[in-house]
Amino acid sequence: MSPLAWREFSYWMRHYRRTWRGTVVISVANPLLFLTAMGVGLGRLVGPGSAPLHGTPYLQYLAPGLLAAASMQTAFVEAGRPVLTAVRPQGSYRAAVATPLEPRDVHAGHLLFVAFRLLTSASAFVAVLFCFDGFHTPRTLLLVPAALLTGLAFAAPIAAWAVGLDGPTPLMSLLRFVLMPLYMFSGTFFTIGQLPAALRVLARLTPLWHGVDLCRGLAEGTATAGSVLLHTTYLAALAGAGLVAGRRAYTRRLHG
């Protein structure tokens, strides 16, 4: 990565200083409301006696999965609309590529900022988790890098795709038809063992399930070297493919 990418990163940081308030609601308050309502409220109904939970309280089961899903959502919020806005003729990418920065610097710098957002959101989430029973362990800290990797596995491909769009409609379709079903059926709220066999196979192929299972395994201390390796390889491959595709797509769009 060229040092010029840091100039793009510092632009997004300055922009963020003006706009951070709204993002706190989306990336921290929303998951926390979910955590409280479903973990504590619904959790009373889903007792630890429920067979698939193997004695784990529902809140402890839910929280790591919810963090992975929240990371996916942050990735969408940060790499979807902002990329689309920045690439318009009047957008900030157009200003940046008129300077010594190359499209690949703009790409790298913006994704650095997205990584920063994923990191801060995951850290805030984990900080709050420490307030709940069952998370007072250093293991909980492992959730931060796991959530970051999950987020990047979504952010890099989304940015690569969004930079080529001409309007926001496809982004809304992505949210409705891809991300929402993933949110619901990737083991966030219940084990995918409860899904019909065909759906179970499908769920195991989705990136969010790998993120959820990675986070949950680390938080509960049930992760094996093999499962961690499988999940991280899958997620890193997706992020890597997204980065390669993104670099090409940025150059095509901004230096067309």
Partner: peptide, 9 residues
């Protein structure tokens, strides 16, 4: 540029 590409925020 024709479109100013300033940051409105």
């Amino acid at each position: 540029p024709q479109d100013d590409s300033l940051d409105m925020e």
